[in-house]
Nucleic acid binder design. Sequence first.
DNA 1: CTCGCAATCTAGTCACTGACAAGTTCCTTG
DNA 2: CAAGGAACTTGTCAGTGACTAGATTGCGAG
Lengths: 193, 193
Amino acid sequence: MKIMSGKPYHHGDLRRVLLTAAVQALTEAGPAKLSLRDLARRAGVSHAAPVHHFRDKAGLLTAVATEGFDLLADALVAAGERTGDLLEIGVAYVRFAVDHRAYFEVMFRPELYHPADPQLLQARQRAGDSLRSGLAMLPGATTGDMPRQAGLAAWSIAHGFATLWLGGALPEEVGYDLEAAARPVLRLLFETG
Amino acid sequence: MKIMSGKPYHHGDLRRVLLTAAVQALTEAGPAKLSLRDLARRAGVSHAAPVHHFRDKAGLLTAVATEGFDLLADALVAAGERTGDLLEIGVAYVRFAVDHRAYFEVMFRPELYHPADPQLLQARQRAGDSLRSGLAMLPGATTGDMPRQAGLAAWSIAHGFATLWLGGALPEEVGYDLEAAARPVLRLLFETG
DNA sequence: CTCGCAATCTAGTCACTGACAAGTTCCTTG
DNA sequence: CAAGGAACTTGTCAGTGACTAGATTGCGAG
């Protein structure tokens, strides 16, 4: 505590600061151009300080991904409770990907982090559960392989639309209003499931 | 020509060799760990030789992406002509993503290459056209926004499934047979469109 | 109260990378 | 056969991730 005059040797909350800076940097330039040394500079510490909080670059991105999965789980649960509509959970998924691009782009690129990290696995599990729980809202989701496949289909279409949107791959005619573009597309699957 | 004894100064087909090596390296380790110098070593040339054929790293990846879009267009056209079934075009899309992972992972990450490159744009356009032409197979694809949205939905679900599969994000129960896993999921959308 | 010790951070270094500059070799074209 | 350009090499620079050793700090045991 007491971060007063000059630079205290102990930063106080370096881990948090580095994570925030990482998300900021990722938003600006993407994972490829992320540099630990740059983050250290932004935080005003030496270039080797981050090592203590995250072992290496992959460790840093593991923390980013973990936080991302937690945020995603929160967002999906909130959407489910707010609307009770699977379609709106899908929209929330797409919304999350675009609003939290920095997190999203790391989360689904396991070669960037340590995919076996326990905390990460737990967060990922939680996000998956909150997605699947939305499927209970589907009518007649009772037996057989149908619900599982419907879940995969729902996840796929939301994930695919979000990824294509982020990659700038969609044609211009889709416009710039994310939800207006996504909702009718998702509805094509969700209303027939 | 006449690449006979020793090392000729002019390699003969360095551009092609570098591209092949790049795809190989991408398959092994992904775009993040791709190194121009490593490719040069693999090809047995100096570390600066690649610059002459591709201006910089992004230039190399532009060429990879261009080739990828061409291959994808070929695959989609072939599937359409072979089966005349939109569902099978979707399966071919997923198949391509997994079989040509190296290409696929570059193609939809425009921050890695020069997205305004004319040849790239042309190849991308061709791939998009071959996808859209498959939509003509849909019954009643005549008026309004429906066909466009159905196209986006089809693209999204195939792209999403492929991406999730590649990222290892899908639960284990999906199994290891790609088409067996993908087909029933895609069918959920394609048969109702 | 104080003292040891672990957590935190700094400083220095190494191999590697992408980009650039300048020079060398080879081939083609006039 | 000369000239000029394309293909390639050598040398160099700043930036990076990882590693090591050491300095500083604050906390808890006694």
